[in-house]
């Protein structure tokens, strides 16, 4: 649904450090720091540091994901796909996001639809192209070298021939498709389960693992968060990305809300399954 994640912290931190600290220097420093974090993480795994309760609970969930869901037709399956110890809080935030969607996001997106679809697709392409570093770095982390190379090539071609990423000639002429990767998936690839379900204000569905993943992606690899000097610029860009996305979306949330008896549970289960599927692919 609503994707993307960042905090104002990146800007605060930048104010504390050198004013002249600009992209790409800052960018590469963060990338280096991220690599260190990853190294530490994987090292930790080897040491058996993944025996946290959350991770253990998660392994059970992952195993359940991997089991054939149809094998046990009449089993004692209570239908739980992801643990949800924070359900009361999550439901409250879900209700808040629901209102945000219907009272703010949707009306804005509807007004924004005056722009022709071709233009909105270009805006979507532009943001997707900007997010290429996130996908490339995470493909690298998972040693998916072909995918990482593909993302690099896509970024090169679409930024130049595709006029700053407004168009997607890499897909049209080279058949190179974008590969959805993020840090949450990288963690998943190394055996970290989703942990518990988490609904974030504004950003929507997440999990213990993917929340950390989104933070790492936003803080270290997302040019939209790193390059602007002002938090307001970041917020404006993210808002544009989201409104544009919703304007292209075909009322997915409305359909879910109308047709499902409990939209919260529906969205939660869909999120957990979709993320598990992305890690597998």
């Amino acid at each position: 649904m609503i994707t993307g994640f960042h905090t104002g912290m990146s800007t605060r931190e930048r104010v504390m450090t050198d004013e002249a600290d600009r992209w790409p220097a800052a960018y590469w420093r963060r990338l280096g720091a991220a690599l260190c974090v990853c190294a530490a993480l994987f090292h930790g795994r080897v040491d058996g540091a993944d025996a946290e309760p959350a991770a253990a609970a998660d392994d059970a969930v992952t195993q359940q994901d991997e089991a054939d869901p149809y094998d046990d037709e009449f089993g004692e399956d209570d239908g739980e796909i992801i643990a949800d110890p924070l359900e009361p809080m999550n439901r409250a935030i879900f209700a808040f996001n629901d209102r945000l969607y219907f009272y703010v996001l949707k009306p804005t997106a509807r007004a924004y639809r005056v722009l022709p679809q071709g233009m909105r697709v270009s805006v979507s392409n532009f943001f997707s192209n900007l997010a290429a570093p996130i996908r490339m770095v995470n493909a690298l982390f998972q040693f998916k070298l072909l995918d990482a190379g593909g993302e690099l090539l896509r970024f090169g071609v679409n930024t130049t021939v595709g006029i700053g990423g407004l168009f997607d000639p890499a897909r049209k002429y080279l058949g190179l498709r974008e590969k959805d990767e993020d840090f949450g998936q990288t963690l998943g690839n190394y055996g970290v389960g989703q942990g518990f379900y988490l609904v974030l204000p504004v950003f929507g569905s997440s999990s213990a693992r993917d929340g950390i993943g989104s933070f790492v992606d936003g803080y270290y690899f997302d040019p939209v968060v790193i390059v602007p000097d002002e938090t307001s610029e970041i917020v404006a860009l993210k808002a544009l990305d989201t409104v544009n996305y919703v304007s292209l979306d075909k009322d997915t949330y409305e359909v879910i809300k109308r047709e499902s008896l409990d939209p919260y549970t529906f969205v939660k289960n869909a999120y957990a399954q979709s993320r598990a599927g992305k890690v597998e692919r």
């Binding site: 869901p69 399956d77 239908g79 549970t265 529906f266 289960n269 399954q273 599927g277 692919r281």
Partner: peptide, 20 residues
């Protein structure tokens, strides 16, 4: 069953209906 973006209709409805 139909899986849309890895989301299985059967598994998803099972979760919602089980809690009902």
């Amino acid at each position: 069953d139909v899986k849309i973006d890895s989301v299985s209709l059967v598994v998803n409805y099972r979760g919602t209906f089980a809690s009902e």
